Simulated scan of single mutants.
Amino acid sequence: MHNAQSIIDTLIHYVDQIESLLTKIEQRPDCDGLLMMRAAPDVFPVCQQMAIAINFAARAVAPVTGRALPHFPDTPTPHALHSLTADVRELLRDVTPSDFIGQTVTHTAGHAELTQNSDDFILRYALPNMIFHFTMAYAPLRAAGLDIGKSDFDGQHSYPDGFSFE
Protein backbone atom coordinates (compact mmCIF):
# COMPACT_ATOMS: atom_id res chain seq x y z
CA MET A 1 0.00 0.00 0.00
CA HIS A 2 1.60 3.21 -1.14
CA ASN A 3 0.18 5.44 1.57
CA ALA A 4 -1.39 3.06 4.05
CA GLN A 5 -1.26 5.45 7.01
CA SER A 6 -3.26 8.04 5.07
CA ILE A 7 -5.87 5.39 4.28
CA ILE A 8 -6.07 4.31 7.92
CA ASP A 9 -6.39 7.95 9.01
CA THR A 10 -9.10 8.56 6.38
CA LEU A 11 -11.11 5.54 7.51
CA ILE A 12 -10.92 6.66 11.14
CA HIS A 13 -11.90 10.20 10.12
CA TYR A 14 -15.07 9.03 8.36
CA VAL A 15 -15.98 6.63 11.17
CA ASP A 16 -15.73 9.66 13.48
CA GLN A 17 -17.92 11.72 11.10
CA ILE A 18 -20.58 9.01 11.04
CA GLU A 19 -20.57 8.81 14.82
CA SER A 20 -20.83 12.61 15.08
CA LEU A 21 -23.86 12.53 12.80
CA LEU A 22 -25.38 9.78 14.94
CA THR A 23 -24.87 11.95 18.03
CA LYS A 24 -26.71 14.83 16.32
CA ILE A 25 -29.60 12.49 15.49
CA GLU A 26 -29.74 11.24 19.09
CA GLN A 27 -30.24 14.79 20.34
CA ARG A 28 -33.49 15.06 18.42
CA PRO A 29 -36.86 14.03 19.93
CA ASP A 30 -37.66 12.34 16.60
CA CYS A 31 -34.46 10.25 16.73
CA ASP A 32 -36.19 6.90 16.13
CA GLY A 33 -38.05 8.24 13.11
CA LEU A 34 -34.92 9.82 11.64
CA LEU A 35 -32.99 6.56 11.99
CA MET A 36 -35.72 4.73 10.06
CA MET A 37 -35.80 7.20 7.13
CA ARG A 38 -34.79 5.98 3.69
CA ALA A 39 -33.36 7.74 0.65
CA ALA A 40 -35.77 5.63 -1.44
CA PRO A 41 -38.38 2.99 -0.57
CA ASP A 42 -36.18 0.09 -1.72
CA VAL A 43 -33.00 0.96 0.23
CA PHE A 44 -31.90 0.38 3.80
CA PRO A 45 -32.92 2.91 6.47
CA VAL A 46 -30.46 5.45 7.88
CA CYS A 47 -29.51 3.27 10.86
CA GLN A 48 -28.62 0.31 8.60
CA GLN A 49 -26.77 2.56 6.14
CA MET A 50 -24.69 3.92 9.04
CA ALA A 51 -23.89 0.40 10.26
CA ILE A 52 -22.86 -0.68 6.76
CA ALA A 53 -20.69 2.42 6.29
CA ILE A 54 -18.95 1.90 9.64
CA ASN A 55 -18.48 -1.77 8.84
CA PHE A 56 -16.89 -0.94 5.48
CA ALA A 57 -14.07 0.80 7.36
CA ALA A 58 -13.34 -2.55 9.02
CA ARG A 59 -13.94 -4.47 5.79
CA ALA A 60 -11.33 -2.26 4.14
CA VAL A 61 -8.54 -3.55 6.35
CA ALA A 62 -9.64 -6.88 7.85
CA PRO A 63 -9.15 -9.09 4.77
CA VAL A 64 -5.92 -7.32 3.81
CA THR A 65 -4.41 -7.70 7.27
CA GLY A 66 -5.91 -11.06 8.29
CA ARG A 67 -7.85 -9.55 11.19
CA ALA A 68 -11.37 -10.55 12.15
CA LEU A 69 -14.29 -8.22 11.51
CA PRO A 70 -16.02 -6.74 14.56
CA HIS A 71 -19.49 -8.06 15.37
CA PHE A 72 -22.10 -6.48 13.07
CA PRO A 73 -25.26 -5.60 15.02
CA ASP A 74 -28.46 -7.51 14.30
CA THR A 75 -30.39 -4.34 15.09
CA PRO A 76 -28.52 -1.07 14.48
CA THR A 77 -29.73 0.88 17.52
CA PRO A 78 -27.77 3.97 18.54
CA HIS A 79 -26.08 1.96 21.30
CA ALA A 80 -25.14 -0.82 18.85
CA LEU A 81 -23.83 1.74 16.36
CA HIS A 82 -21.64 3.38 19.01
CA SER A 83 -20.34 -0.08 20.00
CA LEU A 84 -19.57 -0.95 16.38
CA THR A 85 -17.83 2.40 15.95
CA ALA A 86 -15.64 1.77 19.01
CA ASP A 87 -14.75 -1.74 17.79
CA VAL A 88 -13.93 -0.55 14.27
CA ARG A 89 -11.87 2.37 15.58
CA GLU A 90 -9.90 -0.08 17.78
CA LEU A 91 -9.31 -2.38 14.81
CA LEU A 92 -8.12 0.52 12.66
CA ARG A 93 -5.76 1.80 15.35
CA ASP A 94 -4.14 -1.65 15.60
CA VAL A 95 -3.37 -1.74 11.87
CA THR A 96 0.07 -0.67 10.70
CA PRO A 97 1.09 0.36 7.18
CA SER A 98 3.33 -2.71 6.88
CA ASP A 99 0.21 -4.91 7.21
CA PHE A 100 -0.77 -3.92 3.66
CA ILE A 101 2.38 -4.82 1.77
CA GLY A 102 1.87 -7.33 -1.05
CA GLN A 103 -1.62 -8.41 -0.06
CA THR A 104 -4.46 -9.43 -2.37
CA VAL A 105 -8.11 -9.93 -1.59
CA THR A 106 -10.61 -12.16 -3.35
CA HIS A 107 -14.19 -11.12 -2.64
CA THR A 108 -17.67 -10.70 -4.04
CA ALA A 109 -19.06 -7.32 -5.04
CA GLY A 110 -22.75 -7.95 -5.70
CA HIS A 111 -22.50 -10.90 -8.07
CA ALA A 112 -19.00 -10.06 -9.33
CA GLU A 113 -16.12 -12.19 -8.14
CA LEU A 114 -13.04 -9.97 -7.78
CA THR A 115 -9.39 -10.41 -6.89
CA GLN A 116 -7.69 -7.11 -6.14
CA ASN A 117 -4.39 -6.00 -4.68
CA SER A 118 -4.67 -4.14 -1.38
CA ASP A 119 -4.49 -0.71 -3.07
CA ASP A 120 -7.36 -1.45 -5.46
CA PHE A 121 -9.42 -3.27 -2.85
CA ILE A 122 -9.27 -0.41 -0.36
CA LEU A 123 -9.25 2.60 -2.71
CA ARG A 124 -11.59 1.35 -5.45
CA TYR A 125 -13.93 -0.94 -3.50
CA ALA A 126 -14.06 -0.53 0.29
CA LEU A 127 -13.60 3.23 0.68
CA PRO A 128 -16.09 4.16 -2.09
CA ASN A 129 -18.63 1.76 -0.57
CA MET A 130 -18.13 3.32 2.85
CA ILE A 131 -18.72 6.80 1.41
CA PHE A 132 -21.72 5.56 -0.61
CA HIS A 133 -23.48 4.16 2.46
CA PHE A 134 -22.61 7.25 4.52
CA THR A 135 -24.18 9.36 1.76
CA MET A 136 -27.27 7.12 1.78
CA ALA A 137 -27.61 7.86 5.51
CA TYR A 138 -26.86 11.58 5.18
CA ALA A 139 -29.17 12.44 2.25
CA PRO A 140 -32.54 11.52 3.80
CA LEU A 141 -31.59 13.26 7.04
CA ARG A 142 -30.74 16.44 5.18
CA ALA A 143 -33.94 16.15 3.11
CA ALA A 144 -35.93 15.79 6.34
CA GLY A 145 -34.60 19.12 7.54
CA LEU A 146 -31.99 17.96 10.03
CA ASP A 147 -29.61 20.89 10.49
CA ILE A 148 -26.57 19.31 8.85
CA GLY A 149 -24.25 20.39 6.08
CA LYS A 150 -21.03 19.51 4.29
CA SER A 151 -18.99 19.90 7.47
CA ASP A 152 -21.08 17.14 9.10
CA PHE A 153 -20.22 14.90 6.18
CA ASP A 154 -16.57 15.62 5.47
CA GLY A 155 -15.44 17.43 8.61
CA GLN A 156 -13.63 19.96 6.43
CA HIS A 157 -16.06 22.63 5.24
CA SER A 158 -16.97 25.71 7.21
CA TYR A 159 -19.50 28.38 6.28
CA PRO A 160 -20.52 31.59 8.03
CA ASP A 161 -23.81 31.63 9.93
CA GLY A 162 -26.71 32.49 7.69
CA PHE A 163 -24.93 31.34 4.53
CA SER A 164 -27.38 29.83 2.08
CA PHE A 165 -27.06 28.06 -1.25
CA GLU A 166 -30.43 29.45 -2.37
Rank of each mutant, 00 (worst) to 15 (best):
M1Q: 08
M1G: 15
H2T: 11
H2E: 11
Q5L: 08
S6R: 15
I8K: 10
Y14V: 05
Q17D: 06
I18F: 05
S20N: 15
E26G: 07
E26A: 08
Q27R: 10
L35P: 02
M36L: 08
M36N: 09
P41H: 04
D42A: 08
P45Q: 11
V46W: 06
F56S: 00
A57F: 01
R59K: 07
R59E: 01
A62S: 13
P63N: 06
P63C: 08
P63V: 04
V64I: 10
P70L: 00
P78H: 08
V88E: 03
V88L: 03
V88H: 04
D94V: 06
T96W: 03
P97M: 12
P97K: 09
S98D: 13
G102C: 10
G102E: 08
Q103L: 03
Q103M: 09
H107F: 15
A109S: 14
A109K: 08
G110F: 09
G110T: 07
H111D: 10
L114T: 11
Q116A: 15
L123C: 12
R124C: 12
R124F: 12
A126N: 10
L127K: 07
M130Q: 15
F132I: 06
H133I: 06
F134N: 06
P140Q: 04
A144I: 04
L146P: 00
I148Y: 04
F153A: 04
Q156N: 09
Y159R: 13
G162N: 12
